[in-house]
């Protein structure tokens, strides 16, 4: 039995009168791929935004590797080793593909505004290190031919790959993928599945929000189903598929 990397304890979030996340308690095992599924508006993305600090929980606790994440800002949470992608791809379209990934190395150097402007020799070396590390990630994601392209002109599939490469450049322990396969064609979806398994083999825990059930059932070690912000089922893909509550939630009564 492996230890849990992330624990949500009675997490609760209201937006005005609407309850988006309702007393959600969930643990995510280290090194596994866990999928978070549920109908549209079930609160999956809200859970991601709570974990990564973009919104603050109304009550409850988020514990990552024994650290409380409540009240931490997104950049601090990134520094603790949680990377994420976005449902609507958020590549930096004003930068090249290579530069996008170099932003992912932001936390791997500490140089501030003064030294950046004066550019002493040691900084040139550091820049080269950042550049070559970014290039490795580009090769890993097979984006080499696009390295100097403006990120905004890439097709959607490559933009999703780029977003993942950028998050991986952070060298996170936990990676949150928000609908990585949405908008991708069948072949790209298969490639995405292979990529996620490769990421898992690099000892990175993955939490996946996805609507493509084939992909989810294929690559997940565990699946958690939420509806109206509540956890309605949790288990292996097989267990979840046979759960009557899940069938009701998806197909209606």
């Amino acid at each position: 039995m492996q230890s849990d990397i992330l624990k949500l304890e009675q997490l609760h979030k209201n937006f005005g009168g609407v309850t988006a996340v309702d007393n959600l308690s969930l643990s995510f095992a280290k090194g596994e791929v866990t999928s978070l599924i549920g109908p549209n508006g079930a609160g999956k993305t809200t859970v991601f935004n709570l974990i990564t600090g973009f919104i603050k929980p109304s009550s409850g606790k988020i514990i990552f590797n024994g650290w409380h994440l409540n009240g931490k800002k997104p950049h601090m949470i990134a520094a603790m080793g949680i990377g994420r992608t976005f449902q609507n791809v958020q590549v930096f379209s004003n930068m090249t593909v290579l530069e996008n990934i170099m932003v992912g190395r932001h936390l791997r150097s500490r140089c501030g505004m003064f030294f950046s402007s004066v550019l002493p020799p040691f900084l040139r070396l550091e820049e080269n290190r950042i550049r070559s590390a970014a290039k490795e990630w580009i090769s890993f994601l097979k984006l080499d031919q696009y390295a100097d392209f403006s990120a905004g002109i890439l097709p959607l599939g490559n933009q999703r790959m780029l977003e993942i490469a950028r998050a991986l450049a952070l060298e996170p322990n936990l990676l949150l993928l928000d609908e990585p396969a949405s908008g991708l064609n069948a072949r790209e979806t298969i490639a995405m599945g292979e990529l996620i398994q490769k990421i898992k083999s690099m000892d990175i825990t993955v939490i996946l929000v996805e609507h493509d059930m084939e992909l989810v059932m294929d690559i997940s070690d565990r699946v958690a189903v939420i509806n109206f912000g509540r956890l309605i089922a949790e288990g292996t893909p097989k267990e979840v598929q046979q759960n009557p509550d899940v069938i009701t939630a998806y197909l209606g009564t």
């Binding site: 950049h75 958020q90 930096f92 930068m95 932003v103 932001h106 977003e163």
Partner: peptide, 23 residues
């Protein structure tokens, strides 16, 4: 530099920039 890329990242997408550790 690293700082310049951080600034451009803020311009591109504030959410993505902060998710990569840019304050």
């Amino acid at each position: 530099s690293r700082v310049g890329r951080g600034l451009k990242a803020i311009h591109g997408s504030q959410d993505a920039a902060s998710s990569l550790g840019v304050n």
